[in-house]
């Protein structure tokens, strides 16, 4: 797929939207305006957006507890997302899912997920639907390094490989499973190496570099669409905030975090590359920044002005066929 100016601007807009959304959430929690468990995606933007740039609404994402970035990359509206985080009836899930369950099937977004590794078989199932119904769709599971030690990872990859499903498994290796460094709990240095057990390609990308993720995800997605089966794509990345908002970060040094932010930042790297190549001028990017900033402010205003769900919603949608009483 060719990266036209329009596509580049769109990718930058999505990455900036994720960054701004997450920074706003951190601010809202700190100010006591927002409650709940929030796991922020800031730092990892190039992964979700680099993959999503190849996909449309017929393609599916299954996500993780750190799911806001995948939602935004997949095109879920930020007004609905923000209202969801505020628990309002105008939220993407009418306020009943919250941060860890934002989903929008109309955008092919199968949901964030509160269970580590659980999105993987869901994506495998969506890929099975694509194959049986011949939709031409591809299904992507995002998950962390921690999830690659879960049974759902191994069972999901095995099943997708043996059935040659149109799936892509994207492991976002950010170096930590909650507070525990990856090497304490994972005996392989590269999680991509685990692909070998399932007879599928294992590819490593720089998860801080949109262009590297874009290129490698593109190859894997083309392979999946051609009926050649799944790929495991490991993106080496870093989360700027802790495991959740409020994490005291006692397990990692300030210097490490500073190093990633200053030397590897995905948005700055994108800007350097596009400016250096003469693809995008900084004025265009600053205009995007301003638009995104006002979008996020608008989303917060929309959310705070929205009503909470009515009490009747408590028992709605437990079942399709009847309502609990």
């Amino acid at each position: 797929m060719e990266l036209t100016r329009e596509r580049l601007l769109d990718a930058y807009r999505r990455m900036r939207r994720i960054r701004a959304f997450e920074e706003k959430l951190a601010e809202l929690v700190t100010a006591g305006r927002l409650a709940g468990f929030l796991h922020l995606y800031a730092g990892e933007e190039a992964v979700a957006v680099g993959v999503a740039a190849h996909l449309g609404d017929r393609d599916h994402f299954a996500s993780t507890h750190r799911g806001h970035g995948h939602c935004i990359a997949k095109g879920v509206e930020v007004r609905g997302m923000m209202a969801e985080l505020f628990g309002r009836s105008t939220g993407t899930c009418k306020g009943k899912g919250g941060s860890m369950h934002i989903a929008d099937l109309s955008k092919g977004m199968l949901g964030a997920n509160g269970i580590v590794g659980a999105g993987i078989p869901l994506a495998v199932g969506a890929a099975l639907t694509a194959k049986v119904k011949r939709t031409g769709g591809v299904s992507v599971a995002f998950f962390g390094d921690g999830a690659s030690n879960q049974g759902q990872f191994h069972e999901g990859l095995n099943l997708a490989a043996v059935w040659k499903l149109p799936a892509l498994f994207v492991v976002e290796n950010n170096g930590y499973g909650e507070a525990t460094p990856t090497e304490f709990v994972t005996p392989v240095r590269d999680i991509a190496a685990r692909a070998g057990s399932y007879g599928i390609p294992g590819v490593i990308a720089d998860g801080m570099d949109f262009f590297d993720v874009f290129e490698k995800a593109g190859e894997a997605i083309a392979r999946a669409r051609a009926g050649d089966g799944p790929t495991l794509l490991e993106c080496k990345t870093y989360r700027y905030f802790g495991h959740y908002v409020g994490d005291n970060l006692a397990y990692r040094s300030k210097e490490e975090a500073e190093r990633w932010r200053q030397q590897r930042d995905a948005l700055e790297g994108f800007e350097r590359r596009t400016a250096g190549e003469g693809w995008l001028e900084s004025g265009a990017l600053r205009a995007v920044d301003a638009e995104v900033a006002s979008e996020i402010e608008d989303a917060v205003r929309f959310a705070e002005a929205s009503p909470f769900p009515e009490p009747a919603a408590l028992l709605q949608d437990v079942y399709v066929s009847y309502e609990e009483t």
Partner: peptide, 8 residues
């Protein structure tokens, strides 16, 4: 899933 996704 149905409940968490607001019936959608």
């Amino acid at each position: 899933l149905r409940y968490m996704f607001g019936g959608r």
